[in-house]
């Protein structure tokens, strides 16, 4: 078994538009988090290529950090990518699945982040027990999707 953090929010857009905003415009709506730092000094996130491509963060000096490989690219329904923070141990990879489901004229965007309980004591855990770490992670993702939703009106 692995831990799962799942959040879902409705956004005012079609699945096509929501998928495009998530993947193509992430650099515009993503808000770096002090709690879930991908890199010590935040850069700009972007998806590079489709399946087999990657989610990267480009730092101010142009240096690129790979957050994770894209494992599934199925527009406008589903997207799966690996998630690694610079403060993770080298062998730790968690996984994020994003789904886009039409509900009337809106889209229910859900994020499921799996395996985060494997984050060991250290910089990425802040000394928190699993339950608090996972709740904060859920709030982090809900905030990110809400940011994307604001962009979509």
């Amino acid at each position: 078994m692995t831990s799962k953090v799942y959040v879902a929010l409705r956004v005012k857009a079609s699945p096509e538009r929501a998928f495009e905003a998530f993947t193509g415009e992430i650099g515009a709506w993503w808000r770096p988090s002090g709690l879930f730092q991908t890199t010590p000094r935040p850069g700009v996130l972007s998806f590079e290529g489709g399946e087999g491509g990657r989610l990267i963060e480009t730092r101010a000096g142009g240096k690129v950090f790979e957050i994770g490989r894209i494992r599934l690219w199925d527009p406008p329904r589903r997207l799966v990518f690996a998630w690694r923070q610079a403060n993770f141990p080298p062998d730790l990879h968690t996984e994020v699945e994003v789904a886009f489901e039409a509900v009337g004229e809106e889209t229910r965007v859900s994020v499921e982040h799996r395996g985060f309980h494997n984050v060991p004591d250290g910089a990425a855990r802040h000394g928190w027990p699993d339950q608090l770490l996972l709740l904060r992670l859920a709030e982090f993702w809900r905030g990110q999707i809400a940011q994307m939703g604001e962009r979509l009106g």
Partner: peptide
């Protein structure tokens, strides 16, 4: 009702 948040621990139990 629509699930908006679900947290499962490493053993698959619902935490929240």
């Amino acid at each position: 009702f629509e699930i908006s948040m679900l947290i499962e621990d490493g053993a698959g139990n619902i935490a929240h």
